[in-house]
Amino acid sequence: MEKLRERAAALLADGTVSLVIGFEEGTKRPRPFFCRTSDQASKLIFDSRCFHNLAVYVTKKELVGKEPFAVTAPIATLRSILQLYVENQLKEEQMLILTADPAGELFELRSFDEISAYVANFELKRGEREEEILHKIEGMTREERWQFWLNEMSQCFKCYACRSACPLCYCTKCVVEVNRPQWIHPWPAPLANMEWHINRAMHMVGRCTACGACGEACPVGIPIDLITRKMMEDLAPEFGYIPGLPARQGNALSSWRLDDREQFIR
């Protein structure tokens, strides 16, 4: 962590970057922090408690502007950054990644290929919580699953914390806000909530890298991250992707290949 602070301070001091998006100690646990001077770099922290996906900030123009910036990124954040590159949302020359491996060694990554090579060392695994809930859901019948999610979704009050916390929800106008025609009923009610969450899931399939930020952000505790996670787990092997490792070839559901094994697509 000390190495990261020193490096961040140096980058800010020599003008390589004008901003380091990192973590600072919060009131309960670490929180996102926008470090703009080398003096502030001593507040930076980077450890296993840092769970926020800071990739959510790197597409916000009013925050990052046009100047070069750095972002401290755990593996989950790196996966999202790769996906943002795949979707042409980032410029390699504007962003520098600072990360540290479990042994505490500092890495500086500057391109899609460098990040990709680094992330490939880490397999995406279900954590204890994901395993427990997904195992339960996988054992359910279709009807039980529908009831489970209907009950969960009926708690939703449409604060859109899930959307706001997701690095891949960078649209300036979300489908839920389109009203000509009104695709999704905007008020909170069990079925109207289901419309939103199914739409969200469909917009995420083949893109979500299972960082868990949406589920973490949900104030009413809906494990919504598991929907997109499960879809990723199911979809990736079918389309020849490694789960959580976005590939240059593009998103599974928005790209096509001449050698696709399905007849209908050729």
């Binding site: 959510v56 604060c159 859109y160 914390a161 009923h185 905007p186």
Partner: peptide, 25 residues
């Protein structure tokens, strides 16, 4: 507000936030 994500969680759990929208079904 730099880190604020712009969601409605704070307003929706608040006992006094009274803002509303009018929608047509």
């Amino acid at each position: 507000s730099e880190r604020c994500l712009g969601c409605g969680a704070c307003a929706f759990v608040c006992p006094t936030c009274a803002c509303f929208d009018i929608q047509e079904d």
